[in-house]
């Protein structure tokens, strides 16, 4: 039963990821796309956590943590670039 519910959750989060993809393609500005990509990072963490419960393994958490850090740093770096035209001042 839990497996069935988790599969339903996969579908919901997958739908969310597809909507993010649509938002990233639609734009209209660079920052809209950046926001969509950032949301995509977070949603993929959500998917990984669900998959971890589904497989009964705790190996996924380190991957999720890495994705969280990379997502944060890259989003902030691109924002910095848009603000100043330079990342490291």
């Amino acid at each position: 039963m839990l497996d069935l519910i988790l599969q339903g959750c996969f579908c919901v989060v997958g739908l969310a990821l597809l909507m993010n993809l649509y938002a990233a393609i639609r734009g209209p500005s660079v920052i809209d796309r950046l926001l969509a990509l950032d949301t995509m990072y977070i949603n993929s963490i959500a998917l990984l956590l669900l998959y971890g419960i589904y497989l009964r393994t705790s190996l996924n958490f380190e991957v999720a943590l890495l994705i969280a850090m990379l997502g944060f740093v890259s989003t902030v770096a691109v924002c910095k670039f848009l603000l100043r035209g330079d990342i490291i001042e």
Binding site: C9, V13, M19, N43
Partner: peptide, 26 residues
């Protein structure tokens, strides 16, 4: 309880993406 939290969590994640697609400006 795990199932309830998982469903609630994924619905909120979906809601965030719906807001991303539907709302008018950045």
């Amino acid at each position: 309880l795990v199932a309830l939290l998982a469903v609630a969590g994924s619905l909120f994640v979906l809601l965030g993406s719906v807001a991303l697609v539907k709302l008018p400006d950045f």
